[in-house]
């Protein structure tokens, strides 16, 4: 299970126009952890994620997935291990039908036809998109697209799931559906998001990026309890931890690991 470890050491990235997006980022994520990476716009979240499967090359520092260093030679293996779900599912769903899209990865990995068929069916059922199988991606709703995008990655049986803004642009119901789905995964999970409530529900651990550096790294409750840190990093508490706008009362007692259910019954 050592495959599931992500180790980032002194990672630096300078874009060709001279912008230093990542200055010195280090952390280790171990098997089965669910980690949220948060930070303001431009803090370096997306740049960091793009390093995790080798889409970007580090200017300095190193990345290990499992105990394999990320390099040109190990890239194919690492890309299979690290499943990356992009922010805009339209970028990820480029094939003519949902089936073709989910089969794209397995076919590239050289699986046999029958195997591909079975895998695709299983994965689509898993994300609750079995009925969408033959649809073209442009006929899907936002939530459906997102779930199919996750399926395209799951079909390659990754050990680590990396998701960029998974709940972005979803309606409340689709967001809930997606969160329930992600909670059930046993993979090592890494999310970036501005949806701090989602981060709080799904992640035990939070890494705060600020101007290309790790500003804080710790249990979610601890980080979200630190008002000063959050303010400095242009963040704020998840809404469920803030006072109720109607009765002005404090947040409901939050108990981890279960998601905080903040139900004030104003008409009681």
């Amino acid at each position: 299970m050592s495959h599931h470890i992500v180790e980032v050491k002194n990672l630096r990235h300078v874009y060709s126009d001279g912008t230093a997006a990542l200055k010195d980022v280090s952390f280790i994520i171990t098997h089965g952890e669910s980690v949220g990476i948060i930070g303001a716009n431009g803090a370096g979240k997306s740049t960091l994620l793009q390093h995790l499967n080798g889409s970007l090359e580090p200017t300095g520092g190193s990345i290990h997935i499992g105990h394999t260093p990320l390099s040109k030679g190990t890239l194919p293996d690492i890309r299979r291990t690290v499943g990356m779900v992009f922010q805009d599912p339209d970028d990820q769903l480029f094939m003519p039908t949902v089936f073709d899209d989910v089969a794209f990865g397995p076919l590239n990995l050289g699986y046999a036809t029958a195997d591909v068929e079975q895998r695709v069916t299983e994965v689509l059922e898993l994300v609750g998109a079995g009925h969408l199988r033959d649809k073209p991606p442009y006929h899907l709703s936002g939530g459906e697209k997102k779930r199919v995008a996750i399926a395209t990655v799951l079909s390659m049986s990754p050990d680590i799931l990396v998701m960029d803004e998974p709940t972005n642009g979803l309606d409340p119901f689709a967001r809930r559906q997606l969160m329930a789905l992600m909670r059930d995964f046993e993979h090592t999970r890494i999310f970036t998001s501005h949806d701090l409530d989602m981060v709080m529900e799904l992640c035990d651990r939070v890494i705060v990026l600020h101007e290309g550096e790790v500003r804080a790294d710790g249990p979610a409750m601890e980080i979200f309890g630190n008002d000063k840190l959050l303010a400095e990093c242009r963040l704020e508490k998840p809404l469920s931890m803030q006072g109720c706008p109607v009765c002005g009362g404090g947040p409901a007692r939050v108990s981890r690991p279960h998601p905080p259910h903040h139900h004030h019954h104003h008409h009681d």
Partner: peptide, 18 residues
């Protein structure tokens, strides 16, 4: 980004018909 998404899913320049 699309190209990146393709690479992320093991694309090596060969398209496989199903």
């Amino acid at each position: 980004r699309i190209h990146m998404a393709m690479l992320a899913r093991g694309f090596t320049g060969q398209f496989h018909a199903y």
